[in-house]
Amino acid sequence: MSAEFDVRYTAQLARLSLTDAEAAKFQSQLSQVLVYVEKLKQVDVSGVEPTAHSSEMNNVFRADEPRDWFTSKQALSNAPRQANDLFVVTKVIE
């Protein structure tokens, strides 16, 4: 499986671009990690349920009531760009 690992393609899925040096280094390092995790194939997992997290709980509800939280000024206080009390995004539709 690890032979199919393409670091540049995967990086692009995660919205990362790599320099040639980074790509070569990560390709080799992560291929090693993928070879290491192959050991999980030795384990018989037939009939075993997956664990998403360790506490035994399902849905957690709380009362759906409004309460005080951030003001828009606070919410915008770390925005790299803002205008008219709104976040400025890069144009989505050409």
Binding site: M1, A11, E22, F26, V37, P50
Partner: peptide, 30 residues
């Protein structure tokens, strides 16, 4: 951080999810 994001993206990506992520979650149960 980049290295781990790439690895995490790969193990969740189409065609590899069952082989890596789902299998890991099952071994986590064990």
């Amino acid at each position: 951080v980049k290295r781990r994001i790439i690895l995490g993206t790969y193990v969740l990506s189409s065609g590899y999810y069952d082989a890596y992520y789902l299998r890991a979650q099952k071994v986590r149960t064990l």
